[in-house]
Protein backbone atom coordinates (compact mmCIF):
# COMPACT_ATOMS: atom_id res chain seq x y z
CA UNK A 1 0.00 0.00 0.00
CA UNK A 2 1.32 3.43 -0.92
CA UNK A 3 1.79 5.82 1.98
CA UNK A 4 -0.43 8.84 1.55
CA UNK A 5 0.54 12.39 2.46
CA UNK A 6 -2.24 12.53 5.08
CA UNK A 7 -1.23 9.25 6.70
CA UNK A 8 -1.15 10.46 10.38
CA UNK A 9 -4.52 12.20 10.16
CA UNK A 10 -6.01 9.16 8.55
CA UNK A 11 -5.27 7.05 11.62
CA UNK A 12 -6.55 9.55 14.14
CA UNK A 13 -10.04 8.36 15.12
CA UNK A 14 -9.77 5.76 12.43
CA UNK A 15 -12.96 3.74 11.77
CA UNK A 16 -15.50 6.19 13.21
CA UNK A 17 -14.93 5.52 16.96
CA UNK A 18 -12.44 7.50 19.02
CA UNK A 19 -9.31 5.76 20.26
CA UNK A 20 -10.41 5.46 23.89
CA UNK A 21 -13.68 3.79 22.91
CA UNK A 22 -11.92 1.31 20.64
CA UNK A 23 -9.47 0.57 23.44
CA UNK A 24 -12.35 -0.10 25.83
CA UNK A 25 -14.06 -2.39 23.32
CA UNK A 26 -10.82 -4.26 22.64
CA UNK A 27 -10.38 -4.89 26.34
CA UNK A 28 -13.90 -6.30 26.50
CA UNK A 29 -13.17 -8.48 23.47
CA UNK A 30 -10.05 -9.88 25.11
CA UNK A 31 -12.01 -10.69 28.24
CA UNK A 32 -14.76 -12.30 26.18
CA UNK A 33 -12.21 -14.46 24.37
CA UNK A 34 -10.64 -15.47 27.67
CA UNK A 35 -14.01 -16.64 29.06
CA UNK A 36 -15.78 -18.25 26.11
CA UNK A 37 -19.51 -17.55 26.13
CA UNK A 38 -19.42 -15.10 29.04
CA UNK A 39 -21.28 -11.84 28.40
CA UNK A 40 -18.86 -8.98 29.04
CA UNK A 41 -20.52 -5.61 29.69
CA UNK A 42 -19.12 -2.70 27.70
CA UNK A 43 -19.87 0.97 27.26
CA UNK A 44 -21.85 0.81 24.07
CA UNK A 45 -21.83 4.10 22.12
CA UNK A 46 -24.43 5.85 20.06
CA UNK A 47 -23.91 4.82 16.47
CA UNK A 48 -25.17 6.47 13.29
CA UNK A 49 -27.80 3.73 12.88
CA UNK A 50 -30.68 2.84 15.23
CA UNK A 51 -30.45 0.07 17.81
CA UNK A 52 -31.41 -3.17 16.16
CA UNK A 53 -29.65 -2.33 12.91
CA UNK A 54 -26.33 -3.73 14.02
CA UNK A 55 -24.83 -1.19 16.42
CA UNK A 56 -23.11 -3.92 18.43
CA UNK A 57 -21.56 -5.52 15.37
CA UNK A 58 -20.46 -2.18 13.93
CA UNK A 59 -18.71 -1.24 17.18
CA UNK A 60 -16.92 -4.60 17.29
CA UNK A 61 -15.83 -4.24 13.68
CA UNK A 62 -14.69 -0.65 14.26
CA UNK A 63 -12.57 -1.79 17.20
CA UNK A 64 -10.77 -4.59 15.35
CA UNK A 65 -10.56 -3.34 11.77
CA UNK A 66 -7.33 -2.07 10.23
CA UNK A 67 -6.46 -0.62 6.83
CA UNK A 68 -5.19 -3.99 5.59
CA UNK A 69 -8.40 -5.84 6.36
CA UNK A 70 -10.82 -7.03 3.74
CA UNK A 71 -14.39 -6.50 4.88
CA UNK A 72 -17.52 -8.42 4.01
CA UNK A 73 -20.97 -7.75 5.40
CA UNK A 74 -24.01 -9.99 5.04
CA UNK A 75 -27.59 -9.75 6.17
CA UNK A 76 -29.72 -12.91 6.02
CA UNK A 77 -26.78 -14.48 4.21
CA UNK A 78 -26.96 -12.05 1.33
CA UNK A 79 -24.38 -9.42 0.41
CA UNK A 80 -26.82 -7.28 -1.53
CA UNK A 81 -29.47 -6.41 1.05
CA UNK A 82 -29.93 -2.78 2.07
CA UNK A 83 -28.52 -3.10 5.55
CA UNK A 84 -25.46 -5.07 4.42
CA UNK A 85 -24.74 -2.67 1.57
CA UNK A 86 -24.93 0.42 3.77
CA UNK A 87 -22.80 -1.02 6.57
CA UNK A 88 -20.24 -2.16 3.99
CA UNK A 89 -20.16 1.32 2.47
CA UNK A 90 -19.85 2.81 5.94
CA UNK A 91 -16.64 0.91 6.63
CA UNK A 92 -15.31 1.46 3.13
CA UNK A 93 -15.66 5.16 3.90
CA UNK A 94 -14.59 5.51 7.54
CA UNK A 95 -11.97 2.74 7.64
CA UNK A 96 -10.72 2.96 4.08
CA UNK A 97 -10.69 -0.82 3.75
CA UNK A 98 -11.15 -3.09 0.78
CA UNK A 99 -14.57 -4.68 0.66
CA UNK A 100 -15.51 -7.99 -0.85
CA UNK A 101 -18.34 -10.44 -1.26
CA UNK A 102 -15.96 -13.37 -1.32
CA UNK A 103 -16.16 -15.30 1.95
CA UNK A 104 -12.72 -16.83 1.50
CA UNK A 105 -11.02 -13.52 0.80
CA UNK A 106 -12.53 -11.54 3.69
CA UNK A 107 -10.68 -11.13 6.99
CA UNK A 108 -13.62 -9.62 8.84
CA UNK A 109 -17.15 -10.77 8.08
CA UNK A 110 -19.96 -8.94 9.80
CA UNK A 111 -23.18 -10.87 9.79
CA UNK A 112 -26.65 -11.03 11.04
CA UNK A 113 -28.77 -14.19 10.79
CA UNK A 114 -26.25 -16.44 9.04
CA UNK A 115 -22.85 -18.07 9.16
CA UNK A 116 -21.49 -18.35 5.61
CA UNK A 117 -21.75 -21.80 4.03
CA UNK A 118 -18.10 -21.84 3.06
CA UNK A 119 -16.09 -23.04 6.11
CA UNK A 120 -14.15 -20.24 7.75
CA UNK A 121 -10.43 -20.51 8.31
CA UNK A 122 -7.86 -19.34 10.81
CA UNK A 123 -7.27 -15.60 10.61
CA UNK A 124 -10.85 -14.73 9.86
CA UNK A 125 -13.16 -13.00 12.32
CA UNK A 126 -16.92 -13.40 12.17
CA UNK A 127 -18.76 -10.51 13.86
CA UNK A 128 -22.38 -11.14 14.85
CA UNK A 129 -24.98 -8.46 15.43
CA UNK A 130 -26.96 -9.59 18.45
CA UNK A 131 -30.35 -8.19 19.48
CA UNK A 132 -30.75 -10.05 22.79
CA UNK A 133 -27.60 -11.61 24.27
CA UNK A 134 -29.37 -13.21 27.25
CA UNK A 135 -30.76 -16.65 26.34
CA UNK A 136 -32.66 -16.86 29.63
CA UNK A 137 -34.35 -13.49 29.31
CA UNK A 138 -37.60 -14.84 27.89
CA UNK A 139 -38.08 -16.97 30.99
CA UNK A 140 -36.47 -14.85 33.68
CA UNK A 141 -36.90 -11.10 33.46
CA UNK A 142 -34.56 -10.17 36.34
CA UNK A 143 -31.00 -9.38 35.27
CA UNK A 144 -29.70 -10.01 38.81
CA UNK A 145 -31.20 -13.49 38.68
CA UNK A 146 -29.91 -14.42 35.22
CA UNK A 147 -26.44 -13.24 36.23
CA UNK A 148 -26.56 -15.50 39.28
CA UNK A 149 -27.73 -18.37 37.08
CA UNK A 150 -24.75 -17.91 34.76
CA UNK A 151 -22.37 -17.54 37.68
CA UNK A 152 -23.55 -20.73 39.36
CA UNK A 153 -24.20 -22.64 36.15
CA UNK A 154 -27.91 -23.09 36.91
CA UNK A 155 -29.22 -23.75 33.45
CA UNK A 156 -32.22 -25.96 34.19
CA UNK A 157 -34.50 -23.09 33.29
CA UNK A 158 -33.41 -23.05 29.66
CA UNK A 159 -34.75 -26.57 29.30
CA UNK A 160 -38.19 -25.29 30.28
CA UNK A 161 -38.38 -23.53 26.92
CA UNK A 162 -37.39 -26.75 25.13
CA UNK A 163 -39.96 -28.67 27.19
CA UNK A 164 -42.65 -26.17 26.19
CA UNK A 165 -41.68 -26.59 22.58
CA UNK A 166 -41.85 -30.40 22.66
CA UNK A 167 -45.14 -30.29 24.58
CA UNK A 168 -46.67 -27.93 22.03
CA UNK A 169 -45.21 -29.13 18.73
CA UNK A 170 -43.97 -32.64 19.45
CA UNK A 171 -40.40 -31.61 18.69
CA UNK A 172 -37.96 -28.85 19.60
CA UNK A 173 -39.42 -26.33 17.23
CA UNK A 174 -37.34 -23.23 17.88
CA UNK A 175 -35.35 -22.51 14.75
CA UNK A 176 -33.40 -19.33 15.48
CA UNK A 177 -31.35 -18.23 18.45
CA UNK A 178 -31.18 -21.85 19.52
CA UNK A 179 -29.44 -21.98 22.93
CA UNK A 180 -25.95 -23.45 23.11
CA UNK A 181 -23.43 -24.40 25.78
CA UNK A 182 -19.98 -22.98 25.10
CA UNK A 183 -17.03 -25.00 26.35
CA UNK A 184 -19.51 -26.84 28.63
CA UNK A 185 -19.65 -23.83 30.90
CA UNK A 186 -21.61 -20.81 29.69
CA UNK A 187 -25.03 -20.86 28.13
CA UNK A 188 -24.99 -18.67 25.04
CA UNK A 189 -27.54 -17.30 22.65
CA UNK A 190 -25.98 -17.54 19.19
CA UNK A 191 -27.66 -14.32 17.98
CA UNK A 192 -30.61 -14.92 15.67
CA UNK A 193 -28.81 -17.37 13.38
CA UNK A 194 -30.85 -20.39 12.30
CA UNK A 195 -30.12 -23.57 14.19
CA UNK A 196 -28.90 -24.89 10.83
CA UNK A 197 -25.73 -22.88 11.52
CA UNK A 198 -25.29 -23.97 15.15
CA UNK A 199 -23.04 -26.95 14.34
CA UNK A 200 -20.73 -24.62 12.39
CA UNK A 201 -19.85 -22.75 15.58
CA UNK A 202 -18.29 -25.75 17.29
CA UNK A 203 -14.58 -26.24 16.69
CA UNK A 204 -14.51 -23.37 14.21
CA UNK A 205 -11.10 -22.14 13.08
CA UNK A 206 -12.19 -18.51 12.96
CA UNK A 207 -12.88 -16.17 15.88
CA UNK A 208 -16.57 -15.62 16.51
CA UNK A 209 -17.41 -12.28 18.16
CA UNK A 210 -20.89 -11.28 19.28
CA UNK A 211 -21.90 -7.70 19.96
CA UNK A 212 -25.18 -6.42 21.38
CA UNK A 213 -25.26 -2.63 21.16
CA UNK A 214 -28.49 -1.89 22.94
CA UNK A 215 -27.91 -4.49 25.66
CA UNK A 216 -24.24 -3.43 25.96
CA UNK A 217 -22.74 -6.92 25.95
CA UNK A 218 -19.90 -8.57 24.08
CA UNK A 219 -19.22 -12.29 24.04
CA UNK A 220 -17.07 -14.57 21.98
CA UNK A 221 -16.29 -18.09 20.88
CA UNK A 222 -12.53 -18.48 20.39
CA UNK A 223 -11.23 -20.86 17.70
CA UNK A 224 -11.60 -24.59 18.36
CA UNK A 225 -14.09 -24.29 21.21
CA UNK A 226 -16.84 -26.83 21.76
CA UNK A 227 -20.31 -25.45 21.20
CA UNK A 228 -23.14 -27.84 22.02
CA UNK A 229 -26.76 -27.18 21.17
CA UNK A 230 -29.05 -28.06 24.06
CA UNK A 231 -31.49 -30.94 23.67
CA UNK A 232 -33.26 -33.74 25.51
CA UNK A 233 -31.99 -37.29 25.64
CA UNK A 234 -35.11 -38.46 23.81
CA UNK A 235 -35.37 -35.40 21.54
CA UNK A 236 -31.88 -34.86 20.13
CA UNK A 237 -30.82 -31.66 18.42
CA UNK A 238 -31.63 -31.54 14.73
CA UNK A 239 -31.05 -28.93 12.04
CA UNK A 240 -33.55 -27.86 9.42
CA UNK A 241 -33.77 -29.89 6.21
CA UNK A 242 -35.47 -29.20 2.91
CA UNK A 243 -37.00 -31.54 0.34
CA UNK A 244 -35.94 -29.18 -2.44
CA UNK A 245 -32.51 -28.24 -3.71
CA UNK A 246 -31.49 -24.69 -4.51
CA UNK A 247 -33.42 -23.72 -7.66
CA UNK A 248 -30.51 -21.71 -9.04
CA UNK A 249 -27.40 -23.73 -8.19
CA UNK A 250 -28.83 -27.09 -7.19
CA UNK A 251 -27.07 -27.16 -3.79
CA UNK A 252 -28.39 -29.89 -1.52
CA UNK A 253 -26.69 -28.95 1.73
CA UNK A 254 -27.14 -25.20 2.06
CA UNK A 255 -29.67 -23.13 4.00
CA UNK A 256 -32.55 -22.31 1.66
CA UNK A 257 -34.86 -19.29 1.56
CA UNK A 258 -38.34 -19.73 0.18
CA UNK A 259 -39.18 -17.10 -2.43
CA UNK A 260 -42.81 -16.62 -3.40
CA UNK A 261 -42.96 -15.92 -7.14
CA UNK A 262 -46.56 -14.98 -7.83
CA UNK A 263 -49.96 -15.02 -6.16
CA UNK A 264 -50.93 -18.42 -7.49
CA UNK A 265 -48.60 -20.26 -5.17
CA UNK A 266 -45.52 -20.67 -7.33
CA UNK A 267 -42.36 -20.56 -5.27
CA UNK A 268 -38.71 -21.38 -5.44
CA UNK A 269 -36.06 -22.24 -2.90
CA UNK A 270 -32.70 -20.51 -3.22
CA UNK A 271 -29.53 -20.48 -1.16
CA UNK A 272 -29.67 -17.76 1.48
CA UNK A 273 -25.89 -17.35 1.16
CA UNK A 274 -25.73 -15.33 -2.07
CA UNK A 275 -21.97 -15.61 -2.51
CA UNK A 276 -22.04 -19.37 -2.03
CA UNK A 277 -24.78 -19.70 -4.64
CA UNK A 278 -23.09 -17.41 -7.15
CA UNK A 279 -19.81 -19.29 -6.73
CA UNK A 280 -21.47 -22.61 -7.44
CA UNK A 281 -23.20 -21.28 -10.52
CA UNK A 282 -19.91 -19.86 -11.77
CA UNK A 283 -18.42 -23.33 -11.29
CA UNK A 284 -21.11 -24.75 -13.57
CA UNK A 285 -23.65 -26.12 -11.09
CA UNK A 286 -27.17 -25.79 -12.41
CA UNK A 287 -30.43 -25.93 -10.52
CA UNK A 288 -33.91 -26.60 -11.93
CA UNK A 289 -34.65 -22.87 -12.40
CA UNK A 290 -31.15 -21.71 -13.22
CA UNK A 291 -32.27 -19.30 -15.94
CA UNK A 292 -34.75 -17.50 -13.68
CA UNK A 293 -34.45 -13.72 -13.57
CA UNK A 294 -33.43 -13.88 -9.89
CA UNK A 295 -30.18 -15.44 -10.99
CA UNK A 296 -29.31 -12.30 -12.90
CA UNK A 297 -30.13 -10.12 -9.88
CA UNK A 298 -27.80 -12.05 -7.64
CA UNK A 299 -24.69 -11.37 -9.68
CA UNK A 300 -24.40 -7.74 -8.73
CA UNK A 301 -22.04 -5.69 -10.87
CA UNK A 302 -19.11 -4.59 -8.75
Amino acid sequence: MNARPNEPERYYNYAYLDEQTKRMIRRSILKALAIPGYQVPFGSREMPVPYGWGTGGIQLTAAIIGPDDVYKCIDQGADDTTNAVSIRRFFAQVADVAVTEDTGEATIIQTRHRIPEQPLKAGQVLVFQVPQPEPLRGLEARETETRAMHAYEEYGLQYVSLYESVATYGRIASTVGYPTMVDERYLMSPSPIPKFDNPKMGDNEAILLFGAGREKRIYAVPPHTTVRSLDFEDYPFETQTWDENCALCGAQDSYLDEVVLDDTGARMFVCSDSHFCADRRAAGHVGPMADHQLAALETEPT
Binding site: L139, G156, L157, V160, Y163, E164, T168, F232, E233
Partner: peptide, 26 residues
Protein backbone atom coordinates in the same frame (compact mmCIF):
# COMPACT_ATOMS: atom_id res chain seq x y z
CA UNK B 1 -44.02 -18.95 35.74
CA UNK B 2 -47.10 -17.50 34.14
CA UNK B 3 -45.66 -17.57 30.62
CA UNK B 4 -45.12 -21.32 30.41
CA UNK B 5 -47.64 -24.13 30.64
CA UNK B 6 -48.76 -25.79 33.83
CA UNK B 7 -46.93 -28.96 32.84
CA UNK B 8 -43.66 -27.14 32.29
CA UNK B 9 -44.11 -25.39 35.64
CA UNK B 10 -44.46 -28.73 37.37
CA UNK B 11 -41.52 -30.26 35.48
CA UNK B 12 -39.15 -27.33 36.02
CA UNK B 13 -37.72 -28.52 39.37
CA UNK B 14 -36.77 -31.80 37.66
CA UNK B 15 -34.91 -29.90 34.95
CA UNK B 16 -33.22 -27.79 37.61
CA UNK B 17 -31.96 -31.01 39.15
CA UNK B 18 -30.42 -32.07 35.85
CA UNK B 19 -33.13 -34.30 34.39
CA UNK B 20 -32.75 -34.21 30.61
CA UNK B 21 -35.22 -36.88 29.48
CA UNK B 22 -38.45 -35.36 28.20
CA UNK B 23 -40.52 -38.55 28.28
CA UNK B 24 -39.66 -39.34 31.89
CA UNK B 25 -40.36 -35.81 33.03
CA UNK B 26 -43.61 -35.79 31.13
Amino acid sequence: RMRVSGGANVAEPLMNLGNRHYGKMR
